[in-house]
Design a protein around this nucleic acid. Structure first.
Length: 156
DNA sequence: GCCAACGTTGGC
DNA sequence: GCCAACGTTGGC
């Protein structure tokens, strides 16, 4: 099966592409997703080798900041089991977890990040969830063309 | 099962 | 900091 392409959002104040680059093995578990649609993508469709745009939300400006890739497929999000954790969810049981996460590894940081205004201005990127009205999905699929276009824009 | 109230997201 | 859009909750 060919690799797929994704975009994931993170608030850089919480966890940025630089944090990923500095992490042990440049790898982290992508925890804290608490939305069913996003969960389904993570659990069912993220495969090893898939390429992922790392997007900085709630930053000034919001940007596509770099690339990472999937290095471990879905397993239970243990932060949901921990009452001390911000993402604790008492409804998620160890025997039957509600929430899942994957591991991602740093690939590159864009020398020129692609801002949301540039993405919105690009006719080829009008269909991605990110620029559609009211979208709040934190994990979304991209086509290969959309992924390649964002990478191309980062290179200009 | 409806839907109002509420909490969160995230661009601006 | 504002607030529109959205998902979730809970009373009925």
């Amino acid at each position: 099966m060919a690799n797929k392409y994704w975009l994931i959002k993170s608030e850089p104040e919480v966890f940025s592409i630089d944090d990923l680059a500095k992490a042990k093995n440049q790898t982290t578990h992508w925890d804290g997703v608490r939305n069913y649609q996003a969960r389904n993508f993570l659990r069912d469709d993220f495969k090893i080798g898939d390429k992922v745009i790392f997007y900085h939300s709630n930053s000034e400006p919001p940007v596509a900041a770099g690339i990472c890739e999937v290095v471990k497929e879905a397993y239970p999000d243990f932060t949901a089991f921990d009452p001390e954790n911000d993402h604790y969810d008492p409804k998620s049981k160890k025997e039957l977890p509600t929430w899942f996460m994957v591991d991602i590894k740093f690939v590159k940081k864009f020398s020129k990040p692609v801002s949301i205004s540039e993405i919105k201005a690009n006719r080829k990127l009008q269909k991605i969830h990110l620029v559609q009205r009211g979208n709040r999905l934190s994990v979304m699929p991209l086509t290969k063309d959309e992924f390649d276009e964002i990478v191309r824009m980062s290179d200009k």
